[in-house]
Design a protein around this nucleic acid. Structure first.
Lengths: 138, 138
DNA sequence: TAGCAAGATGCGAAAGCTTCTCAGTTGTCT
DNA sequence: AGACAACTGAGAAGCTTTCGCATCTTGCTA
């Protein structure tokens, strides 16, 4: 249950936090910017400030409930943490995002980091391209 | 010769453009932020505005002379385009950047994009971690 | 259940990076 | 050299994100 996740993160259960988590869970899109979440709240008639949206998303990130990604669009996008790591394919025309996982790539990354004496903390692989639909409508 | 590269890009050869290209070529570091370039210019006694630095770097990027990368630090870094694609390993403590190329990863990426019907335009793989030196001084 | 302290919120202000505007300057071509 | 388009510097402005602070809530206690 939602509230439990928030409590487990050591946070008080407040209206903004419940609403924001709800939006992340119920939104059709998996990747939302802070602005997207904020607009969704306004649409629902919730009077929650943008600063709070950022604060809450940052806390959720710290608690491991969501992941933040910086795509080259200049905005950060947030997605519910599904537990398993994955990378992204982004369409530069329509901004569609596809997730994928490739064990071989993951493995090569570890090998490369080790080879350079790095201890991996995180990584981000984003492939930018044009999806079938957009290529068709070109 | 420098000037030729600028001309080939369809740009006029001006002092700011020559200086900026020179800094990119002669800097020890391969990855510089716009701010880094600007500070270097000031140190050299060149009176060139930050806006111009951004403009010129953006033009160089368009001309294929340099590549721009958005690391998660919030700043963009620019590097001279050496022709061959490569990925990055970034130390989250000291910001050291190591470049690498892994044919197998490149190949898997193409396969994955094809599998999802994407036509690749670009991609960015950044591994964030702690380098040996920083791990030692922890 | 009333009351309290720590923690959250909302608002506006501010920060950091990047781009824009515009008047004045400079390169290039003839 | 002259003309015109291109370029520049400085500051204003734009965007996303964070901060500061007075006010309000939550979760705990008596």
């Amino acid at each position: 249950m939602d509230n439990q996740q928030i409590k487990d993160a050591g946070l008080k259960v407040t209206r903004p936090r419940e609403k924001i988590l709800g939006i992340l869970e119920r939104s059709g899109r998996r990747h939302l910017s802070a602005e997207d979440v904020y607009k969704e709240l306004l649409t629902n008639g919730d009077d929650i400030g943008l600063a709070t949206v950022y604060r809450v998303l940052t806390q959720f990130e710290g608690a491991g409930l969501v992941c933040r990604r910086h795509f080259e669009t200049g905005q950060s996008v947030f997605e519910l943490n599904s537990g398993d790591h994955h990378d992204h394919l982004v369409c530069v025309r329509c901004n569609r995002v596809v997730e994928f996982v490739d064990p071989m790539i993951e493995e090569r990354q570890s090998a490369i980091a080790a080879q350079h004496g790095f201890h991996i903390e995180d990584h981000s692989l984003v492939i930018y391209g044009v999806c079938t639909d957009c290529a068709a409508n070109a």
